[in-house]
Amino acid sequence: SLTLTVRGEEAVRRWYKWAQAHNLEVEVETHGDEYVLHIK
């Protein structure tokens, strides 16, 4: 499992696509303009 902090929706989309390509689940938490992604 992997936890990432990114800024901006574009980065979130990029990681989301990456995770889907690897059959992984993604949980997204929003903290202001930062997003915490939990990839499992």
Score class of each variant (00 low, 15 high):
Ser1Thr: 15
Lys40Trp: 15
Tyr16Asn: 06
Val36Arg: 08
His31Trp: 10
Arg13Gln: 13
Ile39Val: 05
Gly8Pro: 02
Ile39Trp: 02
Ala11Met: 10
Ile39Lys: 00
His38Asp: 02
Trp18His: 02
His31Lys: 13
Glu27Asp: 10
Val26Cys: 03
Gly8Glu: 07
Leu2Phe: 15
Thr5Met: 10
Glu34Trp: 15
Gly8Val: 03
Glu25His: 14
Ala19Trp: 02
Leu24Met: 13
Glu9Leu: 14
Trp15Leu: 08
His31Thr: 07
Thr5Arg: 14
Glu29Pro: 01
Arg7Asp: 06
Glu29Gln: 09
Thr30Asn: 13
His38Glu: 03
Asn23Ile: 02
Gly32Val: 04
Glu25Pro: 05
Arg14Cys: 08
Val28Asn: 02
Asn23Glu: 07
Val26Phe: 14
Trp18Ser: 01
Val28Ser: 04
Glu29Ile: 11
His38Thr: 14
Lys40Pro: 04
Glu9Phe: 12
Asn23Ala: 09
Thr3His: 11
His22Ile: 04
Ala11His: 06
Val12Met: 15
Lys40Glu: 05
Ala21Ser: 11
Glu27Pro: 00
Leu37Thr: 00
Asp33Pro: 06
Trp15Asn: 00
Ser1Asn: 13
Thr5Glu: 05
Glu10Asn: 07
Thr3Ile: 13
Arg14Phe: 15
His22Trp: 07
His31Val: 12
Ala19Val: 05
Arg7Lys: 14
Tyr35His: 06
Leu2Asp: 04
Leu4Phe: 09
Glu27Ile: 15
Glu25Met: 12
Glu27Ala: 11
Val28Phe: 07
His22Glu: 04
Ala11Pro: 03
Val28Asp: 01
Lys40Asn: 08
His38Gly: 02
Glu25Leu: 13
Leu2Trp: 15
Asn23Gly: 15
Glu25Asp: 11
Gly32Lys: 05
Val36Gly: 01
Thr30Ala: 14
Ile39Tyr: 02
Val36Tyr: 07
Val28Ile: 14
Glu27Ser: 13
Val36Asp: 02
His38Tyr: 10
His22Arg: 08
Arg14His: 11
Ala21Thr: 09
Arg14Val: 11
His31Phe: 12
His38Lys: 10
Ile39Arg: 00
Thr3Pro: 04
Thr5Trp: 06
Gly8Trp: 04
Leu37Ile: 14
Lys40Phe: 14
Leu24Tyr: 14
Glu10Leu: 08
Leu2Tyr: 12
Trp15Gly: 01
Asp33Gly: 08
Val36Lys: 07
Val12His: 02
Val28Ala: 04
Glu9Tyr: 13
Trp15Thr: 02
Glu10Thr: 08
Val6Leu: 06
Gly8Tyr: 04
Lys17Met: 13
Glu29Lys: 08
Glu34Tyr: 15
Gln20Lys: 11
Arg7Met: 11
Ala11Gln: 09
Thr30Gln: 15
Asn23Tyr: 07
His38Val: 11
Thr30Ile: 15
Thr30Tyr: 11
Glu25Gly: 06
Val12Tyr: 13
Ser1Val: 15
Trp15Val: 12
Arg13His: 11
Asn23His: 11
Glu25Ser: 12
Arg14Tyr: 15
Glu29Trp: 10
His31Pro: 02
Glu27Gly: 05
Lys40Asp: 04
Lys40Ser: 13
Gly32Glu: 07
Leu2Ile: 13
Ser1Tyr: 13
Thr3Asp: 05
Gln20Val: 12
Arg14Glu: 13
Lys17Asp: 12
Val26Gln: 01
Thr5Phe: 06
Thr5Tyr: 07
Val6Lys: 01
Gln20Arg: 09
Glu25Arg: 11
Ala21Phe: 11
Tyr35Val: 06
Leu37Lys: 00
Glu27His: 13
Leu24Asn: 02
Leu24Gln: 03
His22Asp: 02
Asp33Phe: 06
Glu9Asp: 09
Ile39Asp: 00
Trp15Tyr: 06
Val26Gly: 01
Asp33Gln: 08
Leu37Met: 07
Tyr35Trp: 09
Trp18Asn: 01
Lys40His: 15
His22Lys: 06
Glu25Phe: 12
Lys40Met: 10
Val12Lys: 06
Leu4Tyr: 04
Ala11Thr: 08
Val28His: 05
Lys40Ala: 08
Val28Leu: 10
Leu24Pro: 00
Leu2Val: 09
Lys40Gly: 11
Thr30His: 14
Leu2His: 08
Asp33Asn: 10
Glu25Trp: 12
Ser1His: 14
His22Ala: 06
Glu10Trp: 08
Gly32Asn: 07
His31Asp: 10
Leu4Val: 15
Trp15Asp: 00
Ala21Met: 13
Val6Pro: 01
Gly32Phe: 05
Trp18Ile: 03
Leu24Arg: 06
Ala19Gly: 03
Tyr35Ala: 03
Val36Trp: 06
Thr3Asn: 07
Ala19Glu: 00
Arg13Pro: 01
Leu4Trp: 04
Trp18Leu: 03
Arg13Tyr: 10
Ile39His: 00
Val6Glu: 02
Leu37Phe: 04
Ala11Asn: 11
Glu10Pro: 05
Leu37Val: 09
Tyr16Gln: 15
Tyr16Val: 15
Ile39Glu: 00
His31Gln: 10
Ala19Ile: 07
Trp15His: 02
His22Asn: 12
Leu24Ser: 03
Gly32Leu: 05
Gln20Gly: 05
Trp18Gln: 01
Asn23Leu: 07
Tyr16Cys: 07
Tyr16Phe: 15
His22Gly: 02
Arg7Phe: 12
Gln20Ala: 13
Asp33Trp: 04
His31Ser: 09
Leu37His: 00
His22Met: 10
Trp18Ala: 02
Arg7Pro: 03
Val12Cys: 03
Ala19Ser: 03
His31Arg: 14
Arg14Thr: 09
Val26Glu: 00
Glu10Gly: 07
Gln20Asp: 08
Ala11Arg: 05
Thr30Leu: 13
His22Ser: 04
Val36Met: 06
Thr30Gly: 09
Thr3Gln: 09
Leu24Thr: 02
His38Trp: 06
Tyr35Ile: 08
Glu34Thr: 14
Thr5Lys: 12
Gln20Glu: 12
Val12Pro: 00
Glu9Ser: 08
Leu37Gly: 00
Arg7Ala: 08
Ala21Lys: 10
Thr3Lys: 11
Thr30Trp: 09
Gly8Ala: 05
Lys17Gly: 08
Gln20Met: 13
Val26Met: 14
His31Ile: 12
Thr3Val: 11
Lys17Trp: 09
Trp15Ser: 01
Trp18Pro: 00
Thr30Phe: 12
Val12Gly: 03
Leu4Met: 09
Arg7Glu: 06
Gln20Pro: 00
Ala11Lys: 05
Glu27Phe: 13
Ala21Trp: 10
Val6Phe: 05
Leu37Gln: 00
Arg7Val: 13
Thr5Pro: 03
Trp18Met: 02
Leu24Phe: 14
Glu27Lys: 11
Val12Asn: 01
Gly32Gln: 05
Glu29Phe: 12
Trp18Lys: 01
His38Pro: 00
Lys40Val: 09
Glu29Ser: 09
Gly32Ile: 04
Glu34His: 15
Thr5Leu: 12
Ala21Glu: 14
His22Thr: 03
Leu24Val: 06
Lys17Pro: 01
Tyr16Arg: 13
Gly32Tyr: 05
Lys40Gln: 09
Val12Ala: 12
His22Gln: 09
Ala21Leu: 13
Glu27Tyr: 13
Glu34Gly: 07
Ala11Tyr: 05
Leu2Thr: 07
Glu27Val: 14
His22Leu: 09
Glu10Ile: 08
Arg14Ala: 15
Tyr16Ala: 09
Asp33His: 08
Lys17Ala: 15
Tyr35Leu: 05
Glu9Arg: 09
Val12Gln: 03
Val36Gln: 05
Gly32Cys: 02
Thr3Met: 08
Gln20Leu: 13
Leu2Gly: 05
Tyr35Lys: 03
His31Gly: 04
Arg13Ile: 12
Val12Asp: 01
Leu37Ala: 01
Asp33Glu: 11
Gln20His: 11
Trp15Arg: 01
Leu4Asp: 01
Lys17His: 11
Val36Leu: 09
Lys40Ile: 11
Trp15Pro: 00
Ala19Tyr: 02
Glu34Ser: 11
His22Tyr: 08
Leu37Trp: 01
Glu10Tyr: 07
Val6His: 02
Val12Phe: 15
Glu29His: 11
Leu2Ala: 05
Gln20Thr: 12
Gly8Phe: 05
His38Met: 06
Asn23Asp: 09
Ala19His: 01
Val36Glu: 04
Gly8Gln: 04
Gly8Asn: 10
Trp18Asp: 00
Tyr16Ser: 09
Asn23Pro: 01
Asn23Trp: 06
Arg14Trp: 15
Val6Thr: 02
Lys17Gln: 13
Lys17Asn: 11
Val26Tyr: 07
Lys17Leu: 14
Glu9Pro: 09
